[in-house]
């Protein structure tokens, strides 16, 4: 049986076949010339770079097939640099392949394992060392050292404390208060119900009080999307319906999944779509999630109008806007 399983014998390294350049001096000379030409092409590339860098204007555009309207300066220095590098490489490889020795060489490997004596000696040295230090015999030292070393790592972590403030209730608050006027973004103009036609969408922010400045953090939690439908199209409960005004409904624009701006509104289906992960919200049903990874509807902002007919917030958001977090209670 064992004889039958014997594998085929190794015929050994095949005989070396000489290349043309190895035996024919003319071929060798030709190869030499080819390498020299390649290196020269590299030099031409670098010259193209230098010329383009100094003599083509930065705003010079040319029309090329495939590439279209292209900045000539960028193209000139880029192609010049590319050629300058590429042809050095090709030349060197061609040189190696045609003119440098191509006879395969055999080197021997050695097992990585040390000699048993060496390994035993090493293990013994390590053991003896530990023994000499007396770690095994003096557990008190060992335990206090481990404890101290673990503690010594703490300052490194603790010092990161001042990288930021504690979150507190920050994630649950926005700048929307009862009576805050809705203003357009961009433009900061108050907005009336009549400004929005049925089917229209607008992005709004809370109005700034005099002297106030709006930061990106504010926009990141305050951005609200207004959508106007025909009131009959809503399928809302009494309370949510009372949060709308003449068919205008307001949702937080910050996705309840991962915080992207929910910017795509599809008029025919009345769906809001987040371009990041395609969570889809049904506007007629208080932004209920109908598709995608979001687990919660977009928070709805209760709106009404003030005496001048401008849209205002009836009350703050009743829940935190944006993505979920551990402390979030609903």
């Amino acid at each position: 049986m064992s004889k039958e399983l014997e594998p085929l014998a190794d015929p050994g390294l095949p005989e070396h076949i000489h290349r043309k350049a190895d035996i024919d001096p003319i071929a060798a000379k030709r190869a030499e010339r080819q390498v020299a030409i390649l290196f020269s092409l590299s030099a031409v590339g670098t010259l193209l770079f230098i010329y383009s860098f100094f003599f083509i204007k930065v705003d010079q555009f040319i029309f090329l097939p495939i590439l279209g309207n292209t900045n000539a300066h960028q193209l000139g220095i880029g192609l010049g640099m590319a050629a300058g590098l590429f042809f050095i490489g090709i030349g060197a490889v061609h040189w190696a392949k045609t003119l440098m020795p191509d006879q395969e060489v055999i080197a021997q490997r050695h097992e990585f394992k040390s000699e048993p004596e060496d390994r035993d000696a090493f293990v013994k040295a390590a053991k003896d060392g530990a023994e000499a230090a007396g770690l095994g015999r003096r557990p008190l030292i060992k335990r206090t050292l481990i404890g101290a070393a673990a503690l010594a790592g703490l300052p490194g972590v603790l010092m990161l404390r001042d990288t930021g403030p504690l979150p507190g209730k920050e994630l649950e608050k926005t700048n929307w208060k009862s009576g805050t006027r809705l203003v357009t973004d961009p433009g900061d103009r108050p907005i009336k119900a009549s400004d929005l036609e049925v089917g229209a969408v607008a992005q709004v922010l809370p109005e700034l009080l005099p002297g106030q400045k709006r930061t990106l953090e504010d926009i990141g939690k305050d951005a609200v999307l207004l959508i106007r439908l025909r009131p009959a199209e809503f399928q809302l409960d009494e309370e949510r319906l009372s949060w709308t005004h003449e068919g205008i409904i307001a949702f937080s624009k910050i996705c309840s999944h991962m915080g992207c701006a929910v910017a795509l509104y599809e008029q025919t289906t009345k769906h809001l779509l987040c371009p990041c992960h395609q969570s889809t919200f049904d506007v007629t049903r208080a932004a209920k999630v109908i598709f995608g990874p979001a687990a919660r509807p977009l928070p709805q902002l209760a709106i009404t109008v003030d005496g001048e007919g401008n849209l205002i917030a009836k009350q703050p958001f009743t829940e935190a806007v944006g993505p979920s977090f551990w402390e979030r209670s609903s």
Binding site: A82, G84, L85, F87, G89, G91, V93, W95
Partner: peptide, 8 residues
């Protein structure tokens, strides 16, 4: 040479 090719 290959470095120059990749860079190129």
């Amino acid at each position: 040479g290959f470095f120059f090719i990749v860079f190129g």
